[in-house]
């Protein structure tokens, strides 16, 4: 895999430390979520084909960190990474966090978000297309599934995120 996608970073003062702390706190949650999704939706991996081994950077522009995903069923990786230490990856998907969440849940159309320039992709386009199609073939809501794993607090966080959606600002400058 040729690393084509550069992680980008423009940190505000103190943001690096916040990002590192957020990543530490989030990691156990992310690990649980991705293991659960993989166990419940095994057909996802067939659609990924050779790109099970590709590294993706999912970059929610308004959050202080990005997410590194390698959807390899034998060695799943899903971790939060501060942008300044993000790995070189095969493909990057960038947009507002709630847009990314809605894309995963098929509440939004990826092509439409691309046409409107709210979604940006770089690197290996085939890898992104495969991931998109694999996720789109999943029934139900990943966000609901993940939040339900954490009971009432989980659902409350999701509800709060969704309420915040209409107010979500356009991406701030990040490059």
């Amino acid at each position: 895999m040729i690393p084509t996608s550069e992680p980008t970073a423009r940190l505000r003062p103190g943001e690096g430390a916040i990002a590192r702390l957020a990543c530490l706190v989030l990691q156990p949650v992310l690990t649980r979520v991705v293991r659960r999704v993989a166990a419940r939706h095994p057909s996802l991996f067939a659609r990924l084909g050779p790109h099970q081994a590709t590294d993706f950077l999912i970059d929610p522009v308004e959050l202080p960190f990005a997410l590194h995903l390698r959807p390899d069923p034998q060695a799943l990786v899903f971790r939060a990474v501060p942008r300044d230490t993000a790995p070189q990856v095969g493909a990057t998907i960038r947009g507002r966090f709630l847009l990314l969440l809605e894309l995963i849940d098929a509440e939004q159309d990826g092509d439409a978000a691309f046409f409107s320039r709210d979604l940006e992709i770089s690197g290996d386009t085939e890898a992104v297309v495969r991931l998109r199609n694999a996720l789109d073939d999943m029934d139900g809501s990943l966000a609901e599934e993940a939040s339900a794993m954490f009971g009432t607090p989980g659902r409350a966080v999701l509800a709060r995120l969704r309420r915040a959606y209409p107010d979500a600002t356009k991406p701030r400058e990040y490059a």
């Binding site: 084509t4 320039r117 940006e120 992709i121 770089s122 690197g123 386009t125 085939e126 992104v128 297309v129 490059a175």
Partner: peptide, 16 residues
């Protein structure tokens, strides 16, 4: 336009 042959390049001014 097979996806394997497509690439999107972001320029410094935000163009694509």
């Amino acid at each position: 336009s097979p996806a394997s042959d497509v690439e999107y390049v972001r320029d410094a001014d935000g163009s694509m």
